[in-house]
Nucleic acid binder design. Structure first.
Lengths: 405, 405
DNA sequence: TCAAGTAAATAAAATATTTTATTTATTATT
DNA sequence: AATAATAAATAAAATATTTTATTTACTTGA
């Protein structure tokens, strides 16, 4: 699909030309630009740049956005602005969590056009679940009424371990011993890329706001579990098999809590949504008071409720968040010493706790990180929130089709 | 200098042509190659490749190495082999440690031609020490009788925090508030690049043997202190200011040992050469026996002696190494979970302990790392040993002059 | 409002690169 | 040893790209 848009028809185009075209599109995803700017950026002469852009306009992938109206100028002919076509081609972003699934339609600027959240979802490693998942996505695509030819690709973020090279999700939807991407490709007939949720959120942060400028940062996904995404020298660090970022299983506590990984004392046994719930119930058992009284609820109280109660000032819940934050800070101190990042971006559902969490993390950092790298590192609460995964999924597709596709 | 060799004379050469030439030289540093191979690798046609190579031969930077004699062939004209000129141009590698300084002459293949070790050296942050250092290096250059025009550059690895972008070493030889690279440039009149010793050793490992093939690995510099170098997705991770790798200051112990960083419980208080010495004396004080009897030595017993005694079977010293190894393994388990590296390369002077160390590290890893990433990761003892810094220093210079210079 | 100045876009000329064809060198086979 | 097969190196023709010059479009300031 993308190759047709880039002008690769029956006659073979040189790889170099194709690479240049991809580079132009990649550049225009994040910034509208003029011909001279584009040419300077790509080290091309204006005539060749113009020719390539003309071909891309003919292919329909780029749009002429009219003349640039710049307030500050020293005179001269006003250049035309070019940008990607945001109206005709789309990417499907899918975010598969344990108890919900989010589906987005993104345009070529990696902007969310539509986003739907299904909360009555239950992720499992079964054929039925795969079928349900596929039909939910299919319905969403149908509802938006896009021609299949206009779908550039699908990006999928899923919890658990994932090998991006093969599109294999090991923990969930691993059916018939085939990669998840295989099943999705069969159903949707477009390029499909699958990644771990934390990785994809990290990509989302990288393609948005502050993250764009940062060559080295760390994204903390504090949800039911605890994961970490690393942007190292500008690229997502995936490691040999794509398993990087399993921060929650660092040995940290001398506690006796058994982790899902089979070990004891993992950071994630206390520093995670799951850990918050465990600790909450222990506190209640010990007789501590909270506005969240288990007797008032049919279901087990979950970490979302604890976070909200803390925000509203509930002392017991606040304590839980603050203790968690301090320990997270203590452990992130090691990360700061190790990676000297420019920022730590706090994301995941627990990041909604906001300043309560941030300040306790900072106390932990202050105590345990080296002063020099600590000074280099900002602590930021993610502005993307739940959108991070979907934007990241879009970015994953754009990266892949414009690098290798 | 390098630009003259690359053929950049009075007439301006295009950046693209220069980039191609640099890419050819970069390729030929590690492998001798034929024209067709080079052209395929760089996506160039044979005629253009041939032309560029001819120019590089004229410039004297490349050599024709005669016909390739390949045992396995399907017939056909035998191609000529080309490689970098290893006879006329050199790089100076300098490795500055607390109590010794090593100076090497390297050829363009990043091979050690000559190596000299000065053990009566004492690194300090004084003008005198800078003067001594400069004259030691100058003598070494004079002794080898190289024309200054034939020195491509100087790479310097120094202990302590270093900002490579400016060549600033903060802890030592920081004189007149000017970067160390400035002082060296003044004295030696060639490009000078300064980096932290662990970083430069990591580069050394990357440019040698197994390291060349690895996209993700971690180098452990276990000497007097404990540092870590990270190759992430093929590039050295330096972090925002170049402070990355301060693994020794991760909070790890509940001990009361004060670290030089001012904190207590740092990993390096026990897991490091310095820590080994402290623990040794505590054991002796407690009445434990060892073939190393402090009464027999005038000077304080140092970690080199402890490592050697352990190798020779001394129980007390063996215990020290094994305890250290287990704790190092436990802490590296976090690194394996976090980075999913293909290998951990053990270097630094303590790595001479060899299998005793390796096996105890592996017990720690086995207990605390996640099985999947652990399976991905080999534990290797560095084969370069003390040469790592010098080879890394050479690689640093080659990288810099062939990327930006 | 009109020149003078500035910069983008286009056209023409000059280079550079690639493709294709040819020649040369080497190996394998008869 | 002669010939066919194979692949490198070179030469010639075909493309592509860049440089330079020219034209067009817009801004500024008299």
């Amino acid at each position: 699909m993308i190759n047709k848009l880039l002008g690769k028809g029956l006659d073979v185009e040189s790889t170099k030309k194709l690479d240049h075209k991809k580079a132009i599109v990649k550049l225009l995803i994040d910034n509208e630009n003029t011909i001279p700017e584009i040419c300077q950026h790509l080290q091309l002469s204006v005539p060749t740049g113009t020719k390539l852009i003309q071909e891309l306009l003919d292919g329909g992938i780029l749009h002429n956005l009219g003349k640039k109206d710049d307030a500050i100028t020293s005179g001269g002919r006003r250049p035309k602005l070019y940008g990607v076509n945001t109206k005709d081609y789309f990417i499907i972003g899918v975010d598969i969590q344990l108890q919900e699934i989010n589906i987005a339609i993104l345009n070529m600027k990696n902007e969310l056009v539509k986003k739907t959240r299904y909360t009555s979802y239950n992720l499992q490693n079964s054929k039925e679940c795969l079928q349900t998942t596929i039909s939910i996505i299919a319905d969403e695509i149908k509802a938006f009424d896009i021609d299949n030819n206009n779908i550039l690709g699908m990006g999928v973020g899923i919890t658990g371990r994932v090998k991006i090279a093969t599109g294999d999700s090991y923990n969930f939807l691993h059916i018939d011993n085939k990669p998840l991407s295989h099943h999705f490709k069969e159903s949707f007939d477009c390029p499909v890329y699958v990644e771990n949720d934390t990785m994809i959120m990290t990509l989302g942060e990288q393609s948005f706001g502050l993250g764009q400028q940062l060559r080295n940062f760390v994204f903390v996904n504090l949800s039911k579990g605890l994961g970490l995404g690393i942007i190292s020298e500008g690229t997502l660090h995936t490691g040999k098999s794509g398993y990087a970022g399993e921060f929650g299983h660092t040995h940290f506590f001398d506690n006796n809590r058994l982790c899902i990984c089979g070990k004891k004392g993992c950071l994630g046994t206390e520093v995670s949504g799951h850990g918050m719930e465990e600790i909450f119930y222990e506190k209640i058992q010990k007789g501590e008071q909270s506005k969240l009284n288990p007797a008032d609820f049919k279901k087990r109280i979950n970490y979302h409720q604890i976070v909200n109660a803390a925000i509203e000032g509930d002392m017991t819940c606040m304590e839980i968040i603050q203790d968690l934050g301090f320990n997270l800070g203590k452990s992130l101190a090691g990360i700061i010493n190790l990676l000297n990042p420019e920022a730590i971006i706090l994301g995941g559902t627990c990041a909604e706790a906001g300043d309560v969490l941030k300040h306790s993390i900072q106390s932990g950092l202050q105590r345990f990180a080296l002063p020099m790298p600590l000074k280099d590192c900002q602590i930021i609460i993610s502005e993307l929130g739940a959108k991070a995964s979907l934007i990241g999924a879009g970015r994953l597709v754009l990266n892949e089709i414009l690098n290798n596709g």
